[in-house]
Computed example of a mutant assay.
Amino acid sequence: MERDSLSFPDTGDLRADLLTQMEALLRGLFGSPRFGRALIGLIADSHHHVDLAQGMQEVLFQPRIDDGRARLAKAREAGQLHADADLGLAVELLYGPVYYRLLLHQGGLHSPAELETLVDHALRALAPDTTLE
Rank of each mutant, 00 (worst) to 15 (best):
residue 67 D to K: 10
residue 28 G to H: 09
residue 40 I to W: 06
residue 81 L to C: 09
residue 68 G to W: 02
residue 87 L to A: 09
residue 34 R to F: 00
residue 82 H to S: 10
residue 82 H to M: 04
residue 44 A to T: 05
residue 44 A to M: 07
residue 63 P to T: 01
residue 74 K to R: 15
residue 38 A to Y: 09
residue 32 S to M: 11
residue 87 L to N: 10
residue 49 H to L: 05
residue 69 R to K: 15
residue 52 L to M: 11
residue 50 V to P: 04
residue 58 E to L: 11
residue 39 L to V: 04
residue 27 R to I: 00
residue 27 R to P: 05
residue 67 D to M: 08
residue 56 M to Q: 09
residue 29 L to W: 00
residue 24 A to F: 01
residue 52 L to W: 02
residue 63 P to L: 04
residue 68 G to K: 07
residue 31 G to R: 08
residue 30 F to K: 04
residue 77 E to Y: 00
residue 68 G to Y: 03
residue 67 D to I: 05
residue 35 F to V: 07
residue 45 D to R: 15
residue 83 A to S: 09
residue 84 D to R: 06
residue 53 A to G: 14
residue 30 F to L: 09
residue 25 L to P: 02
residue 73 A to I: 05
residue 73 A to Y: 02
residue 52 L to Y: 08
residue 50 V to Q: 11
residue 88 G to W: 05
residue 80 Q to W: 04
residue 82 H to C: 03
residue 27 R to K: 13
residue 26 L to Q: 11
residue 58 E to Q: 14
residue 68 G to M: 10
residue 71 R to N: 03
residue 70 A to F: 07
residue 61 F to G: 03
residue 23 E to H: 06
residue 78 A to K: 08
residue 71 R to A: 15
residue 24 A to Q: 11
residue 63 P to D: 01
residue 28 G to M: 05
residue 86 D to E: 09
residue 80 Q to N: 07
residue 53 A to M: 04
residue 48 H to G: 09
residue 26 L to F: 03
residue 87 L to R: 10
residue 82 H to K: 12
residue 75 A to E: 03
residue 42 L to Q: 12
